[in-house]
């Protein structure tokens, strides 16, 4: 299942959503708000989203992952809005019979999500400036 939320991600609920008695492994990835990037300090992040497309792309991600790895269940939750350092913006949980599949699938999901799902973050730097983060166009 995939889910987009405006509220705090409930890590325990994400884990429980993929639990399965056939599972020998459950992997949970949390993407959390980092306070230091290079020599700059982040006060907060704001996430913007093209929601209808993001949902479509997240559903495609889950479907593609299930064809690539023999996993039992997948849960992807992305949070939007205003986040403070340390808070999770994304959670991905994967359960599988053996750990290799869950690790590999989870890694692929987060790597591909960050290329294909139209969700953007704006850094609110501690010096009071703001900046949308777009890989490959940092100087724009």
């Amino acid at each position: 299942m995939i889910h987009i939320t405006q509220t705090t991600i409930d890590n325990q609920a994400v884990l429980e959503s993929v639990q399965d008695t056939r599972a020998g492994a459950v992997v949970l990835f949390l993407g959390t708000t980092r306070s230091i990037t290079g020599d700059r300090e982040t006060d907060s992040l704001d996430y913007d989203c093209y929601e209808s497309m993001a949902i479509r792309k997240l559903e495609q991600l889950e479907a593609n992952a299930r064809t690539k790895w023999d996993v039992l269940d997948i849960q992807i939750v992305h949070r939007l809005g205003h986040l403070l350092p340390g808070e999770a913006s994304v959670a991905i949980a994967v359960s599988s019979a053996h750990r290799g599949n869950a690790f590999e699938c989870g890694q692929w999901l987060i790597d591909t999500l960050k290329e294909e799902v139209p969700i953007w973050k704006k850094e609110n730097w501690s010096d009071g400036t703001h900046e949308w983060v777009h890989p490959g166009m940092e100087d724009s």
Partner: peptide, 12 residues
Amino acid sequence: VAIIPPVSGGAS
């Protein structure tokens, strides 16, 4: 029609 800037990415 939508214009999609590079998504938030980030070093792995």
